[in-house]
Simulated assay, not measured.
Amino acid sequence: MNKSFLKQFAIALVLFLLGYFTTQVLFAQTLEKPKVSIAVGGKNLFYYLPLTVAEQLGYFKDEGLQVEISDFAGGAKALQAMVGGSADVVSGAYEHTINMQAKGQPITAFVLQGRAPQIVMLASNKTLPNYKSVADLKGKKIGVTAPGSSTNMMANFVLARAGLKPADVSFIGVGAAAGALSAMRSGQIDAMANLDPVITMLEQKNEVKVIADTRTLKDTNNIFGGLMPAATLYAPEAFIKKNPNTTQALTNAMVRALKWLQKAGPSDIVKVVPESYLLGDRALYLEAFMKVREALSPDGTIPDSGAKTMLKALQTFEPDLAGKNIDLNRTYTNAFVVKANQKYK
């Protein structure tokens, strides 16, 4: 190895290190909060796949962020973590922004992960072999990821359309993975509102009957009468106002993940997600992914009409919302998504 080569190598290394450290300093100067904690309820679900992609492919790091993700049994638990101060941001369902505004605690969604809920409500063939209609669920036990979560909201809406109230059934938190499968298969619950890959695993063995399905845009429109924003990243209004550059960096990473997912094939997905997400069946996991792929947002934009559809749906079973003056413009913003899409075409 000659001296000329060593000299060139040394110069190249110095330039690289200078560039790296300069970049880190710039990030540190522009990001108000480089370390961000995100709470999520059921990270293994396709509902939150964009979050996992952004994390696993290093997109948060590329934006200068150190992100710590804490996984909870359901979206309601993740929301509690943020309200309690143990998380800065939540990867969770859009409807929480409406409910929290009604309680005088304004939070804002700033990037959309899913444009359809992907939630499926099922009846157990084991405990309800003669199930015919939603009316048959009166007095029964219904599993949800966690009480107060988006799965609970979906179940409430389906019940309301059939003339039943939430109090007419018993809701049981079963999580979003093996616990949900076990609860259904053991007969602990009579019905369940949950998401893929759990749903496809139960369907594959003919263990359930589908009551309502929101994995496609068409089915979602049929049930709710319009677009229905699902998973988002949301945070308190105060956090976003105080940390606009940090919020932009989070949005950039998520939009980049959404763009990647639009082009990724099934084999790309299994290389990115942790092995535990596959629940021991890679082929089934990929089959489930193809069922929900359409539900993923292509660019992170939260549709104006979707916010109105959500409020209308919530008002069907939450009487407290009926008399509230909800300012939907405060529940979401697309300002950060617009900039992120300019950066990642």
Rank of each mutant, 00 (worst) to 15 (best):
K3Q: 11
T331P: 02
G280A: 07
Q315N: 10
A116D: 00
R256A: 01
G163I: 07
Q188V: 13
V292G: 09
M228V: 01
S186I: 09
P147L: 12
E95L: 09
V90D: 04
F5V: 15
P236T: 15
Q80C: 09
A238W: 10
G74Y: 04
V36Y: 00
V53D: 11
L122R: 05
A183Y: 09
A135Q: 15
P266I: 13
A76C: 02
L65R: 02
A167I: 14
I326N: 07
Q56R: 09
F171Q: 02
V273N: 04
G84R: 13
A10I: 15
D168I: 04
K103I: 15
V169F: 08
P34S: 00
G175L: 01
Y47S: 10
A176D: 02
G92Y: 06
T22W: 14
T30Y: 14
P303F: 03
I199A: 06
V174L: 06
A322M: 02
Q188E: 11
A238C: 08
L112R: 01
L112N: 07
P274S: 06
Y131A: 00
N222F: 06
G175W: 01
T127S: 12
Q315S: 09
N2A: 11
G226E: 12
L195A: 14
P244G: 03
I69D: 05
P319C: 12
L65P: 06
E275L: 15
K308C: 07
A257Q: 05
R293S: 14
L296R: 05
K140M: 05
M82K: 12
P298M: 10
T108K: 11
G85E: 08
G179S: 01
W260C: 11
L31M: 05
